[in-house]
Design a protein around this nucleic acid. Structure first.
Lengths: 153, 153
DNA sequence: CCGGAAATGCACGATACTTGCGCCAAAGGA
DNA sequence: TCCTTTGGCGCAAGTATCGTGCATTTCCGG
């Protein structure tokens, strides 16, 4: 699939507002609503648009704390990764988890209601995990930008 | 605004699929479509749902590289933060930026097409910034989980 | 200059959303 | 106990939005 400037405009607009009407989209990208509909369908079909998600307000839901945790695992036994992946999958406080190159083995993006809930997660769940060797936390003080998605040009 | 179990079910479902039809939502949460519509509107009105966003496939768009960068700034002059905030705002490769407690001053979530584009960003943009004192990168090797949003219970 | 494939806009049938309405169940007062 | 009020619910009608067939235009390649 090859993307032209219309597609890029459409994708950019839909990242900002995925509930946009085809008519509004049409106005924004200078195309007819029907063409927007068709291009949208094609982009979804091609898997460029994976889906749509509601963005929720963490503040209004009482989730005041966000943190980035770097984790090192001990040992190198096989099954070590699968084991940690299961741990990640089973803990909804972990919103994102990446295996990374460099100093740490994994980086986790954590959401919690408050510092107590966060400390609880660290001390009752993460640290007791048998393969976790080291944990270093950075708590988010201020969000300068949080766009998710991808910048297209 | 107070949320009951229906609201939580609706929010959870809409985080997974924000383009869901009210009828589908109704079936999933055991409510009528009209009530789903009303509750949805109320949640949007209250700001609990901030909006909707299209999720794009980084892979299909040729954005193969993701990295987490920890940055330390030099000095403590006032205006230092505003300056760095402007830098962040002006660089679309930076998808998220957080000021954090702990070892680093800022954590950045970076997306780039490939290692070259990433290196270019580091050496031509980030490192030359006058207030950047130290930069430590971790490149994402594998994504175990990437949900964004918030887990409700 | 011409032919054809691809893309576009229009119009209309189909689908989904929204809201007025009557109903019901729970809480509180007489 | 009985009545009233209040809030939430489903149904159904009216309205907005979507998706597609079709004729037209645009853009290349020959």
């Amino acid at each position: 699939m090859t993307l032209d400037s219309f597609d890029i405009a459409i994708l950019t607009a839909l990242q900002r507002d995925g509930a946009m009407t085809n008519a509004a989209l049409a106005e924004q990208v200078n195309l007819s609503a029907s063409q927007c509909s068709r291009r949208r369908a094609a982009l979804e079909q091609a898997g460029v648009i994976e889906g749509y998600a509601a963005r929720l307000s963490a503040a209004r839901l009482g989730y005041g704390l966000r943190a980035v945790i770097r984790v090192n695992l001990s040992g190198h036994g096989q099954g070590r990764e699968e084991d940690f992946a299961r741990f990640v999958a089973g803990h909804p406080q972990i919103r994102s988890a990446f295996s990374v190159s460099g100093d740490a083995d994994y980086i986790l993006d954590i959401r919690a209601r408050d510092l107590d809930a966060f400390a609880d997660f660290i001390h009752r769940h993460l640290l007791p995990h048998p393969q976790v060797a080291q944990v270093r936390s950075e708590i988010v003080l201020k969000t300068l930008k949080d766009e998710g998605g991808i910048a297209l040009r």
